[in-house]
Structure formats: C-alpha cells, structure tokens
Design a protein around this nucleic acid. Structure first.
Lengths: 233, 233
DNA sequence: TCTTGTGAATCCCTTCACAGCT
DNA sequence: AGCTGTGAAGGGATTCACAAGA
C-alpha cells in the first residue's frame, strides 16, 4: 500500500476514499436485508446471518463493510440499527433526493404509482411529458408538467435525479436537455447507450438485456424446447 | 491457444466454451447497436465504430467477439448483418423464448403492454394474477389467468422464462412455486433476494438499488442541495 | 496500410486464512 | 471461545501493444 494517510482514522465523511463500485451495489442489498431484519425485531446480527440474507459470502460482506469503517464488535456482531445508519450515511441517503420522471407512458406511470419503489431519501417531485392529453392531469399526487417547460420545472423542483422513460427515438435528445439543464444523475429505462459528458452518471435498467442474458444461460443448459441435449446435472 | 478443435469451425452451438458473464452482458448491447446501424443502412462496421456506439473500448469489443469466433476481416471490419446473426446465435436468440408475466399490477401491465421491450426471439405467452377483478380480463392480446392455475398455465404455454412482478411480501413464495413447476429462468422486479436452487438463474431489475447507486456518486461529487463542498473538477 | 485477433500486463474483485479484539 | 477486520492469494476482467492477415 502506498496511501500516505494514517490508517484507521477518518471513519466517515470528509474526503472519504471511494468505495469500490461492486461494493456500493451490494451495500444497497445489505440495507434492504437489514430493514427486513429490523422489521422482525432483530437487534444484533452476525456477518454470517446478514450475508446469508443478502445472498453473498460472509467475508465479502465484512470486506464491503470495512470500506465504511469498523462498525462491528468482535466476538459479537453488528448492531442492526447502527449499521443501517452507517450504511445509509455512506451512500448519501441521509440527504434528500428529488426525482423527476421524464415520460409518463405506461412505464413512467407505473413507476410514479409505486411509492414503495421510492424508499427512504427519495421522493418524486415532478412528472413531465409531451402528450397534451396527459399534461396537467394528476398521477399519484403530482400534476404532469409540459415537456416544453422541462428546464423550468427541474429548476423549480430542484430535481437532482432524472428517471428517463421516454421512447427510444427521443431518448438521446431528451437526455441532452437534461444534462444541459444541469442534471448529473440519470436513471434510464430506455435501451439506448446514452452519450453524456464525463461528470454525468447514467445507470440503465434494461429488461431486454436481462432477458437475453437469461436466454444465454438457459440455451447453454439445454435447448429450451427442441430436442433435449445435455441430460447430466 | 491450447484449444484442440480446429479454429474457424464450429461457429456456433454444440458444446461451445462458456462466454465470460461480463462479455455476455455487453454482447446484448452490441446487438442493439448493430440493429441501429443496420436500420441506418450500414453494411460494414469497424471495431472502433461499434465500440463507440456501445460506449466501450474497441479492444474490449474485439476481445468479447473473439469468444464467439473470428467473424471479422482484418483491414476491413465486420459485416453488420453477419455479425448480428453470429451474436444472436451465440446468445441463443434464434430459439423461441416464451415469457410469462407473473403479477399484472401497474408494473406487470406496463411490461405486458410494451411489445418493443420484448424484442426478437421473446414473446409473452401468459399473464397471471391473484386479483379476481383482473383475472379473465384482456391485456394486450392475452387473457389473464388465475394464479391458482399457475402450474397448468406454465405447462400449457410451455413457458421457459418467468417475469416476477408480484408484491415483495409474496415474492419468495411465488418464486418457489415457479421453481417447483420447472421454471429455471426468472427475471425479478421485486427488491428481494430470492433463494433458489443452483440450477435456477435469477436476474434482478431493481430501480431502488440503481437510485441509491446514483445517490452515492452524486453525494460524493458534491453535497446535493446543502453547501457546495468540492469545487475542483 | 489498415484493422482484426490475441498474448501479456495490469487492475479490480473475491476468497482465504488468521491476527486481533471482546 | 467467538466473530470481526484485513493482509495475502487467487481469479476475472480490462487494457495494452503488437503480430497476423486482408
């Protein structure tokens, strides 16, 4: 190791060292597992138990947690409540995130209607569409804004995350407007590779890709409907 | 290379060596990029062009394609049509995949209504729900079946992929029934870690996790709404 | 000359194994 | 004695750099 700072200090906040991407993704899973455990009344949890609930190896869980600091007690385990707070803090979930849904077709409407999806720290603050027949209608408890006013709406609602649910054909154009308007976190449900400047984070949710990956594995395991091939296993 | 088979032969099928998971995921992206290019009339494409369209490094693209075989021409590039077919074959998309959507709430209905989502090779063959008020209604061109008949419906429709859109609380129980009924490919939209036997493939689509990952990066880049912290970059 | 295909090097992620603390 | 936290080992994945071939 060549890091010059004293180890073990600076457990959180400040200019914390970055958490590996793979760990960040799993921390969100641990958080959900902890919520379940807390709901059941669990107060203390071991790395083994939590790892099982999250579907990972216990040493991986401990290594993931070690990026945040030392929040467990040797010989005992972790305090579920405390660990939840620490993970939340590390992920930035103690701040409030204002989400705008851009495009309220079938999918956008479904997302807007699922308050469960938007858990702690996230709130939908705007719905935007181009379709005159939905503009100014109410979905959930929000009025749909006109796409023409996109920039104004984002500004007024202080949106810091945009969820993109527009048709494929216009996705890049809408994305460009979002970036231009200062949005730097985008969750895209469109199956296009969005071209964005470096400082903008894009995450993609893509059912089509996931289905194709499933198909690949199933296809390797055995031909799906035609003649049975491999019988072993 | 130590592979004993003659190179260039066995372009597909048989007992092909496995493609690394990371590559499989990207191959689906290349496929989509190729479709766009083909739609524009492109016939030949270089690794550089295709890599740009897919948002990856060109040597990574070439390495990914090398797992399938040698389908390019040195000094020239790839034939878009031909490459598309080869990738499709490698992913098993030439077979037909029958998808059942389990749970037709807001989200399930939105997915059922998006024929665009279910691209080549995939077709929705069944919709299943417990709600008496939706059973036997038509969504898209399909009649919703009763969850009680799940096993019969899966059998009759020869479903080989199930999409799980049921409420969190019942997700594991429904998943167990799917597995028991012989389904071994599941795409889950529920934010739970499903416990399944080894031979069952589960992929998760999870908006909540993606939002939290975005939050983490935004939170590190700068405090989102409170005082500005880091100004550099 | 141009672009592919691929060993080699590098980087990152996961697992192992155990020291260190309760 | 028990469980966490972590160096070290091992395994993938990505990038580099260039030989091979049109």
């Amino acid at each position: 190791m060549t890091t010059p700072h004293t180890p073990g200090l600076h457990p959180v906040g400040d200019a914390a060292r970055p958490i590996p991407p793979a760990s960040v993704a799993r921390l969100t899973i641990y958080l959900r597992a902890l919520n379940s455990l807390l709901a059941e009344g669990t107060e203390r949890v071991s790395s083994e138990e939590l790892a099982d609930a999250a579907g990972v190896n216990s040493s991986m869980l401990r290594k993931d947690l070690s990026y945040l600091g030392s929040y467990g007690t040797r010989g005992v385990g972790y305090d579920a409540q405390y660990l939840t707070r620490q993970i939340s803090a590390a992920l930035g979930l103690t701040l409030d995130w204002r989400v705008a849904i851009i495009g309220v077709g079938n999918l956008g409407r479904a997302l807007a209607g699922y308050p469960g999806f938007l858990s702690r720290g996230f709130g939908i603050v705007a719905l935007v569409d181009t379709d005159q027949s939905v503009i100014d209608t109410e979905i959930g408890h929000l009025r749909v804004s006109a796409a023409d006013d996109l920039e104004v709406v984002l500004e007024r609602t202080r949106t810091n995350i945009a969820v993109l649910c527009v048709p494929t054909a216009v996705a890049q154009a809408v994305c460009d407007r979002l970036v231009e308007a200062g949005i730097s976190s985008i969750l895209s449900f469109t199956p296009v590779v969005l071209q964005v400047p470096e400082h903008v984070q894009v995450r993609k949710v893509d059912m089509s890709t996931e289905l194709q990956i499933l198909a690949y594995h199933a296809h390797r395991a055995q031909e799906p409907d035609l003649g049975p091939v491999s019988r072993a296993l």
